[in-house]
Nucleic acid binder design. Structure first.
Lengths: 357, 357
DNA sequence: TTGTAGGCGTTATCAT
DNA sequence: ATGATAACGCCTACAA
């Protein structure tokens, strides 16, 4: 590799001057400037970011740990974070915790060791053992989507209470008596909050679900299928299923399909987290949509603010019910409004060209 | 931050000794070893990976640049790469080119500057201007999914020729006369190869598609919709559409649905790239499935081999037709076999627990 | 305006 | 077995 010294020699100056030219610092004559630039060009010199970071105590890098990269919900968030970060001259390195607390802790340490300037974490579980390490290291931390025990870090999250209340009301109005819930893990804040909010909403309507109709999955596909299987094997099976995550919703759908059960005739289904393909199913799936892009953007901005020494407030976005009929409900709420909600802004135009050969 | 010097002071030894203990090097007495370890523990010392990398000329980090993180195809690949890398003690930093050549070039430079030990790239376009930079830097490079002009780097790709031939035969056998193709960009190897292979297969059967029935999209959702719209507006519209990518397939589906066209009654549809939700549609979508997990794993292994000084051969995996009836074809090929094909191996068990409160 | 020198936190080569 | 000491490649007072 060619280093700054090589450039200095080639240009007949000292490394200090090269550095100054590189960083647009004061002083260098237009003449030496061009000489240095020429040398850099001829040698194809690229500064060593490691050395620079070591010296500068800054890597211009954000660390992002998602609970599961395969979950499109997190993939979208990751993309939004990256967009925002890049716009501010930061680069993002990802870690995939795969819904595992240990793997998450490992990644936290790895990223801390690499001296990221800030850490964005979608916590896998409530366990906040790793938070202490981050605090000690002094690296700014922002929590995304889920909270964690014993942390005072800023949080960017989604409030689904109102949407779940609307869903509960809609289900009751539709005449559902037995409501099955495929909840998230009890050791995640989102897992608990969604279930609690939904249960509370039902209770207000005098319909608390039976205990055996509430199962906890792990936010992944297979657990959704297993829960659906269990629920539909009950003597008094639910008339509608509410899956608290898109992956568990997918699993539940697969299971229902496998059992030859027709939605919503045999059993209704609603899912938390919208996905582009939900409207394509027959019937289209009723969902609670979350503003993923806004979440990622807000989280990145909060972290950047923290790095800049500010004290960003928690951000609380709100989810929205998109009623599409998969619970047998009557009126479809305007579907038109749902598309822009979760659509990332694309700057480059989409091209379609005819084959000309 | 606490540094090695702090630990050395605390333990009453030199930094050299601390370093030796840390790296399990020869020499330290069991006594000093425990003293050092204790100091490390008490101080909560964590080595600075930047400094270490600067000194060691190795970051134990792989760079992965995907063309579009939002495409589940690449998300799965990314996950597989990361799994394999971690198993070998490497960490992966991602870059999202977003199907843009410039952004990709930017990321290549960024990762090179950070001195990754190896680079894995899913090229956005044929343009290989960036390859020279990588070559000069001496950083090992492996190409994934797509090839690039003027590169001699090892490539891990998928051969869809046979699957496309089977698809062509199936469509012809089903009686399709007018076959519409939503091809990928002409400036990507996969875009061209899939179209070429499919066209050739049709030609063998005496059915070359009309030029106006072949449109090029950009591997993203909106372009699939636009292409489908254009094709279905033609006076002699196709009786079946073949989308050469899952995102364009999604867009096409949305467009067809929006126009009130029923698959396969009004128009058939086949898609390149399987996704978990394709079997859930009515009818289930006929696809050409790619072994994404195997691709990611193979690519990571090739890169690791390259880093180790070996000379890995190109890897060519094969895609498979999964016929589900969305083209109006009669016999459904065994669906059973399709699931395991693209399923990532999960080591931790899936848990489903009953609500006990 | 430019050069010299010291240090960022490690590891490795010498001595001791 | 352990301790100085010199890099690794860069930035930045301080001097000139």
């Amino acid at each position: 590799m060619t280093t700054m010294k090589d450039v200095a020699n080639r240009a007949g100056v000292s490394t200090a001057t090269v550095s100054r030219v590189l960083n647009g610092h004061a002083a260098p004559t237009e003449q030496t400037r061009t000489r240095v630039l020429a040398a850099i060009d001829e040698l194809g010199y690229r500064p060593n970011a490691l050395a620079r970071s070591l010296r500068m105590h800054s890597t211009k890098t954000l660390g992002l740990i998602v609970s599961d990269l395969l979950n499109p919900f997190f993939a979208e968030i990751a993309r939004a974070v990256e967009d925002e970060a890049r716009a501010h001259g930061y680069c993002v390195v990802f870690g995939n915790a795969d819904e595992s607390a240990e793997q998450q802790a490992t990644y936290v340490r790895t990223l801390l060791d690499r001296r990221v300037d800030g850490l964005l974490v979608c916590p896998a579980t409530d366990d906040g053992g790793w938070v202490a390490e981050v605090t000690e290291s002094g690296v700014p931390l922002v929590l995304l989507d889920r909270t964690v025990d014993g942390s005072t870090a800023p949080v960017v999250r989604v409030d689904g209470t109102e949407a779940l209340r609307e869903l509960a009301a809609s289900l009751v109005a539709t005449g559902h008596e037995r409501i099955g819930v495929i909840a998230g893990p009890a050791n995640t804040s989102t897992g608990r909050e969604r279930l609690d909010a939904f249960s509370a909403a039902l209770a207000e309507l005098g319909r608390r679900p039976r205990p055996e109709h509430v199962l906890h999955g792990d936010f992944r596909r297979a657990s959704g299928a297993a829960a659906a299987a269990a629920l539909m094997s009950l003597p008094e099976r639910p008339s509608v299923l509410v899956a608290m995550d898109n992956l568990m919703g997918l699993g539940a759908l697969e299971e229902l399909r496998g059992r030859g059960l027709v939605v919503p005739r045999d059993v209704g289904l609603a899912v938390y987290d919208d996905q582009p393909w939900f409207p394509l199913l027959d019937p289209p799936i009723t969902v609670i949509a979350q503003p993923t892009v806004a979440m990622g953007g807000a989280a990145a901005r909060s972290l950047l603010a923290l790095i800049a020494g500010e004290q960003p407030a928690d951000v609380r976005l709100t989810a929205r019910l998109v009623s599409r009929g998969s619970c047998g409900e009557a009126g479809l709420v305007s579907e038109r409004a749902s598309s822009p909600f979760n659509t990332a802004v694309r700057t480059r135009p989409t091209s379609v060209s005819e084959e000309d050969s």
